[in-house]
């Protein structure tokens, strides 16, 4: 599903060249729940952005769902994002002038799954526990609720890959756990879920943990001590 071969990403800032990813190779299979772990500046968000076609690698090959992203045009990357990946952001990035229901409808519209959009959006929101918050604007919702709307919006696209960048970063422990549970359910339902975090505790519930440091993969495998249930987490 996701195949990276010798991927590097370098940024040139004035006279300095910063290597965010340095010859990274990896393979992620369909339906895997993968946590990319690493401290700040390790290159984990860059990795996520390259997989999500928000950014292009300086060198190497990135093939996601059969699409070679390192050589695509901007228009092809837009199409890829519309049809293959869905993002969940740390700061939710909901549209403040749209209600919870409309934010989810937007996901349906963008991916052109908009038939019976309102009902579908309502049922997706109900599935993330927000059936009673449909007509609330984002600022009327708590952080956890907003992130659940963001997940619902991502799910509405029907895309096979979910990319979550620090999805619990803005949330308290209890709410964070609920969000992780939702993401885990998506993986169990067959979606490929990639979560980027600096919180090692979260990596315990993954099928696989890829640890990055200074742009290199320093470890890749099952969580240490085996996969834990969500209710066993604490931070």
């Amino acid at each position: 599903m996701i195949e990276l071969q010798n991927v590097s990403k370098r940024y040139i800032v004035g006279p300095v060249t910063i290597t965010a990813l340095d010859h990274v190779s990896l393979h992620i299979a369909e339906g895997e729940f993968v946590v990319v772990l690493g401290p700040s500046g390790s290159g984990k968000t860059t990795l996520l952005n390259i997989i999500g076609a928000l950014d292009v690698p300086t060198e190497g090959s990135v093939r996601v769902n059969g699409v070679e992203l390192s050589t695509t045009t901007q228009a092809e990357r837009f199409k890829f994002r519309r049809e293959t990946v869905s993002f969940i952001f740390q700061t939710f990035n909901l549209f403040p002038s749209l209600t919870a229901l409309e934010n989810v409808e937007l996901g349906l519209d963008i991916s052109r799954n908009g038939r019976n959009g309102r009902q579908t959006a309502a049922s997706i929101l109900a599935s993330v526990g927000l059936g009673d918050r449909l007509s609330h604007l984002p600022h009327e919702l708590s952080g956890g609720e907003q992130q659940r709307v963001a997940i619902a919006r991502a799910l509405a696209t029907g895309n096979p890959i979910l990319l979550a960048d620090e999805p619990t970063g803005e949330l308290d422990f209890r709410t964070g756990v609920q969000i992780l549970e939702l993401l885990q359910q998506q993986a169990e339902a067959g979606k490929t879920v990639l979560v980027v975090t600096h919180n090692r505790e979260i990596s315990r519930i993954a099928d696989r943990v890829i640890e990055l440091s200074s742009g290199h993969i320093v470890s890749d495998g099952a969580p240490r001590g085996g996969k834990a249930p969500v209710h066993a987490l604490s931070w």
């Binding site: 700061t91 939710f92 909901l94 549209f95 403040p96 002038s97 749209l98 209600t99 409309e102 934010n103 409808e105 937007l106 349906l108 519209d109 963008i110 908009g114 959009g117 007509s135 604007l137 984002p138 600022h139 952080g143 907003q146 803005e170």
Partner: peptide, 26 residues
């Protein structure tokens, strides 16, 4: 997210059905 706000006018529109897709209503 803590600073997200919307005007009262935008809130009024919540109950008014608008034609078109969500991004055409935006």
């Amino acid at each position: 997210t803590l600073i997200q706000k919307s005007s009262r006018l935008a809130a009024l529109l919540v109950n008014i059905p608008l034609p078109g897709r969500s991004f055409t209503q935006m």
